[in-house]
């Protein structure tokens, strides 16, 4: 079963839910697809046993063939090529690898070569297999690295995907093909507002989902009213407790020190499984 964990806004506790769930069930593979801020390793502290580079193809110019006509730069929608009468520069961080420059070049001076856009880390921690990606600082296109992380999915395991926050392309790439998506929110006007955006995305993608309310005893009841009206199940409520917040700040998943929560997460997993099989 593939469960992705997402949230409309950042800082709702998405990574906390993902790591605590991972620690509460068996046979887990955790894929951290929040490649701009992959923070789950800060909580699980895995031993990294392998890394791989992620490449995209970017243009390289053979200057002996190039006559500086500038057609490639003119074509490039992303401004990743600069041409003047005596030089040509490529900006791989901006390149989307569409291949258009190579096609327009009248002198066949452009070939494509790999450029490193990210790194994939493989690790193990407390019986959990963790794979996470990290986008190179300054690179603009996160979806490529997300796709690579997901290619390493092992469907024989219980796969948990930690998605980036928001509702943009990398989020869609992360939650795509999940059996179920958990949306983490908090019961505040901010939380509700951003939850609505996330719900509209999941409905459009036709992925079943439910909500976890984090810091459930702060704020108001509007998230609950909304879920009831929209027929969205609330899977779990995590209260605001100083102890949980303190453990989080130290990078310790709270199920490790509060075993009663482990059972709650196991139950959550069973509930989701029942919902998916139905």
């Amino acid at each position: 079963m593939i469960i992705s964990i997402a949230s409309g806004k950042g800082g709702t506790g998405k990574t906390s839910i993902a790591t605590n769930l991972a620690l509460s069930i068996n046979n887990v593979q955790l894929l951290d697809c929040d490649v701009e801020e992959p923070n789950s390793y800060l909580f699980l502290k895995p031993e990294i046993n392998k890394t791989e580079d992620v490449f995209i193809f970017v243009p390289v110019v053979d200057e002996s063939l190039c006559d500086n006509c500038g057609k490639c730069a003119e074509f490039c929608e992303y401004n990743a090529i600069f041409v003047s009468k005596d030089k040509i520069l490529i900006f791989p961080e901006l390149c989307h690898s569409c291949g258009g420059c190579k096609l327009v070049c009248p002198t066949s001076a452009i070939r494509e070569e790999p450029h490193k856009t990210g790194t994939i880390y493989y690790g193990n921690s407390k019986g959990i297999e963790i794979i996470y990606g990290e986008l190179e600082v300054g690179d603009a296109v996160a979806s490529n690295v997300v796709r690579e992380v997901k290619l390493r999915m092992n469907k024989d395991r219980n796969v948990i995907i930690d998605s980036p926050p928001g509702a943009s392309c990398p989020v869609i790439e992360s939650v795509k093909n999940s059996d179920f998506c958990i949306l983490v929110t908090e019961p505040t006007p901010f939380g509700l507002h951003d939850l609505r955006i996330a719900v509209s995305v999941l409905r459009e993608m036709d992925i079943p989902f439910g909500v976890i309310v984090n810091r459930a005893d702060i704020g108001d009841r509007k998230v609950y009213d909304y879920c009831k009206k929209e027929n969205i199940s609330i899977l779990l409520e995590v209260p605001f407790e100083r102890k949980i917040a303190e453990l989080y700040s130290k990078g310790i998943p709270f199920v490790l020190e509060m075993p009663a929560w482990k059972e709650k997460f196991q139950k959550l997993f069973d509930t989701i499984r029942a919902m998916v099989q139905k």
């Binding site: 074509f75 989307h96 690898s97 569409c98 291949g99 258009g100 096609l103 869609i172």
Partner: peptide, 28 residues
Amino acid sequence: GNCKFNAISEEFSVDTHSCEGCGVCALV
């Protein structure tokens, strides 16, 4: 055949979510 983003379907319509607007299809 030239779209790197798999944005063009068998029926030749464009998935605007996948399309990154590079313009290669218009070029070819």
